[in-house]
Computed example of a mutant assay.
Amino acid sequence: MDEAKEVWVFNGSRAKFPSAIFVAKENALEWIEKYRLTGILTKYPVGVSVYEWSIQSGNFQVRLERDSTPDFIGNFSSAAQEHVHFENGTTASAPT
């Protein structure tokens, strides 16, 4: 069996923890639509932290000493990750 290189993680709008993780984006989209969910679906790399992925992909550079502290790394997220916002199960439109 092939190992997943990425997964899709759904976080509800008020959640502290993810409510679902999918290998296939299509399955995530069906589930979100079925339950008319509001939140964010984000693609995560498997086997590497978002912090390391961001550095390797050139989306982030360590510039300050705090950028390599445990607290910073443990709370790191990247807007460069592919993600989709949903409201009531449909793609949320960007404000104009």
Rank of each mutant, 00 (worst) to 15 (best):
M1E: 15
E3F: 15
E3H: 13
E3K: 10
E3Y: 15
E3N: 09
V7N: 14
V7D: 06
V7P: 06
W8C: 01
N11P: 13
G12Q: 04
S13W: 08
R14T: 09
R14A: 12
R14G: 04
R14K: 09
A15D: 12
A15W: 03
K16E: 05
F17Q: 11
P18M: 02
P18C: 09
V23G: 01
V23Q: 02
A24L: 14
K25Y: 09
E26K: 11
E26Q: 13
E26W: 09
E26H: 05
N27F: 15
A28H: 14
E30N: 15
E30P: 14
W31K: 02
W31V: 03
I32L: 03
Y35E: 13
R36Q: 13
L37C: 02
I40S: 10
K43H: 09
K43E: 14
K43G: 11
P45C: 00
G47F: 10
G47R: 06
S49T: 05
S49L: 08
S49V: 10
W53P: 03
W53E: 02
W53T: 06
S54A: 05
S54D: 08
N59I: 06
N59D: 10
N59S: 12
F60H: 02
F60W: 04
Q61E: 12
Q61C: 07
V62K: 04
R63D: 12
R63W: 09
L64D: 14
L64I: 08
R66E: 13
D67P: 05
D67H: 11
T69L: 10
D71F: 05
I73H: 04
G74C: 03
N75L: 11
F76C: 04
F76Y: 06
S77W: 12
S77V: 14
S77E: 09
S78A: 01
S78I: 05
A80Y: 15
Q81E: 05
E82R: 10
H83K: 03
H83F: 11
V84N: 01
V84H: 07
H85E: 10
F86Q: 00
E87C: 11
T90A: 12
T91A: 08
T91M: 02
A92I: 05
S93G: 12
S93F: 04
S93V: 14
A94S: 08
A94R: 14
A94H: 06
T96Q: 11
T96A: 03
T96Y: 11
